[in-house]
């Protein structure tokens, strides 16, 4: 797991692009945490620090027409798939300009224009639905692929087993991305199953499953590219188990007392940002300045997103009653002067 990131297959531009991706997710989340503590964001947040290499590596290997499903922890997936930082930040603020108009919020970030359905906050909820997305692509012969993100905790849900088995037997164009960060909320995965590696469970469904260093963005990218190619070529789904770690608590206010600090430190040493940066700079020391510039650009993008979100208007209350159905009929409770 702590081998140097292998950048030999990447040109400098591509490496910088991946680095930008990682930095965008990290800075966004660090800022969100501060804003949350300041009371600027409603509701709750589940943060992605530590797992950036997974979202960035996977989405880099997808084609623009591909789709993803996400979870209660979607900020990283959203940014990596192309949801704008402004749209994501404004959504966290519950503003009208958010990517879901303020209706979705942190746990339901998404944007169909970039191939992301609203994140699904029901654990394993995406795993059954993604079968249908893959089925549609297959029936339409579109060559599109769906990537489905979920945590290791989700593999204990019935939906996971039903969904994967069905997609397997139908040879659907799906890439399952299991982010094994060792904990589902406070519960360590090994307490919940006698099979601690997700790849071993999935072997039973007859599809390829690979275990990948989820703190290595290049490894994640390569594994996804291979799985995507298989899926698009009619070879059926693949499961990628990304071994990773969330640096933050499960959700805001989690003091992480169920984990050892030594364990956290060991994983922090594998920080995906540092590892990519080190590999790039050791290949070409002159990259250091360019990566600094990338960081500065991300900082500016983030600043702009926060300003945009703060200055955006609240959604109009009437918006709460639109978009329930395709037809424009009033929701039943609005009839007959009930309001």
């Amino acid at each position: 797991m702590n081998e140097p990131v292998d950048v030999s297959g990447l040109d400098a531009d591509h490496a910088r692009l991946l680095y930008r991706g990682l930095v965008r997710l990290r800075r966004f989340e660090d800022r969100v945490y501060q804003l949350f503590l300041k009371g600027e964001l409603p509701g709750t947040v589940h943060q992605y620090q530590g797992q950036e290499a997974v979202a960035v590596g996977v989405c880099d290997a997808l084609e623009p027409g591909d789709w993803i499903t996400s979870t209660h922890r979607p900020h990283g997936h959203a940014l990596a798939k192309g949801v704008s930082m402004r749209g994501a930040m404004a959504e966290l603020y519950g503003k009208a300009t958010g990517c879901c108009g303020g209706k979705g919020g942190s746990m339901h970030l998404g944007d169909p224009d970039v191939g992301m359905v609203p994140a699904i906050a029901i654990v394993a909820g995406g795993v059954s639905i993604v079968s249908g997305m893959g089925l549609a692509f297959k029936l339409q012969g579109s060559g599109q692929v769906a990537a489905c993100f979920f945590g290791e905790g989700a593999t204990n849900e019935g939906a996971f087993h039903e969904g994967v088995n069905f997609a397997a037997v139908q040879r659907l164009p799906i890439v399952y991305v299991c982010e094994n960060n060792l904990y589902g909320a406070s519960t360590a995965y090994h307490l919940t199953t006698l099979v601690p590696d997700v790849v071993d469970r999935v072997a039973a469904y007859g599809i390829p499953a690979v275990s990948v260093d989820g703190m290595d963005v290049v490894a994640m990218r390569e594994a996804t590219a291979e799985a995507r190619e298989r899926a698009a070529g009619g070879g059926g789904p693949t499961l990628i188990e990304a071994k990773t770690y969330r640096f933050a608590g499960h959700s805001r206010g989690d003091a992480r007392k169920y984990r050892e600090r030594e364990e956290e430190d060991a994983w922090r040493d594998l920080d995906p940002l540092t590892r990519l940066r080190d590999a790039v700079v050791s290949r070409d020391p002159s990259e250091a300045g360019r990566l600094d510039a990338v960081e500065a650009e991300v900082e500016a993008e983030l600043e702009d997103a926060v300003t945009f979100a703060r200055e955006s208007p609240e959604p109009d209350a009437a918006e709460a009653f639109t978009g329930v159905y395709a037809d424009a009929f009033p929701v039943p409770s609005m009839r007959g002067g009930i309001l």
Binding site: P42, E314, P315
Partner: peptide, 11 residues
């Protein structure tokens, strides 16, 4: 009201 719950406080 007969709508899914929106997240924005205003909604």
């Amino acid at each position: 009201h007969d709508v899914p719950l929106p997240v924005a406080p205003a909604l």
